[in-house]
Design a protein around this nucleic acid. Structure first.
Lengths: 193, 193
DNA sequence: CGATTCTTTGAAAACAGTCAATCTGTGTGG
DNA sequence: CCACACAGATTGACTGTTTTCAAAGAATCG
């Protein structure tokens, strides 16, 4: 529902009531069933999505059955394919719901209008982009510098709550290892104690 | 020299002469010797750096001798630690010159002033941040989904020119494999032909 | 030239992936 | 309420890849 978003955005950005109403007037609310898609590889991404409830993920699927998860997005976070949305190019990502979810979404056109007319929103989006860039840079560094076990421990520290909501084979896919390897890492950690 | 930057920025952003002069008035020009540092791990990053000539890199060093290269920046590109610059937090990156280089740099304070007073520059910086975010996202995906050999081939396709300017052990460090592994990948590629 | 940096190679060990089987818990339909 | 299907997690045996360590061969710079 929109009210969840309203609460959130008022904490994060400096918007007056009129500005929030403007956002509401362009927002689309959707409920998602588990496994429901909001974007599939090859399509052009048309929305920027805010999650008010539930859990979504963005992932890329290889020709074989392999899936590589780029992002988990729980309630009070955003998800989209920024490059596809921005350029109108075909996405190489899928976005789907891991839990029954509630989302609010806007089209690119409306976002442009909103950002151009609500300075506080523009500033907030700028901050979002920066943060996401820092995060990917940091995660890339981890990917090229840490062992599988270290990556797993970093994941636990950063997202302790996610571990309880996401099946382990998806954590493995997020870390870039197979589910079997992750399972063995967890076993040796148990044994060591 | 600044003139190299001036040529570049006039192509990339919509700046009038007065705006370019404003940028010049706040710019610091520096010549760098090979191996000279512009930032070392633990310091707060104070500059955003434009390279007019030469080649710089940003990398993170582990307690052992390991180095992990996050970015190469040749002439007509930017380098900094965005998060450290932005937040004033200690950087976990080093930035140094791989070739004798010429750079132009600005402090955070001056950049804010410039971006706030030159709309075209702000738009250009926004685009830079987006691009860098797309790049890291893509590179992360490659890091968790490709084999070492595929990553090497992707690197060659994306930066054919860099291969001639960067020692192979640094390419290895950028890809997240050891120099020995990269050497063996290259050998099997030769044999296959 | 001499020193340093860079690249390659070999052999052994550590690590991660694959394939196949089993085990667990959950939820659904009969 | 039970039986069964299904998704998730684990395990073993095996294979393949990457790292590590040590050494030596090229290339480059001053």
């Amino acid at each position: 529902m929109f009210s969840g978003f309203e609460t959130y955005i008022k904490e994060q950005a400096n918007l007056n009531d009129h500005e929030v109403q403007l956002m509401r007037s362009m927002a689309v609310e959707r409920s998602l069933r588990r496994r429901e898609f909001l974007l599939q590889q090859g399509q052009v991404c048309r929305y920027k999505i805010f999650i008010t409830k539930g859990l979504l993920r963005a992932y890329s699927a290889g020709g074989d059955g392999s899936e590589h998860i780029v992002q988990f997005s729980p309630e009070n976070s955003w998800i989209t394919d920024p490059e596809s949305l921005d350029k109108g190019s075909p996405s190489n990502s899928n976005i789907d719901a891991l839990e029954p979810s509630e989302v609010v979404l806007w089209t690119k056109k409306d976002l442009h209008y909103l950002a151009a007319n609500i300075p506080g929103l523009k500033a907030y989006f700028d901050k979002l982009i920066s943060r996401s860039s820092y995060m990917f840079r940091q995660r890339l560094l981890s990917a090229i510098s840490l062992t599988a076990e270290e990556k797993y421990e970093e994941f636990i520290k950063k997202f302790p709550h996610l571990l309880e909501r996401v099946p382990l084979h998806m954590v493995a896919s997020y870390l870039g290892v197979t589910r079997e390897t992750l399972s063995r890492i967890r076993r040796t950690q148990l044994i060591r104690k």
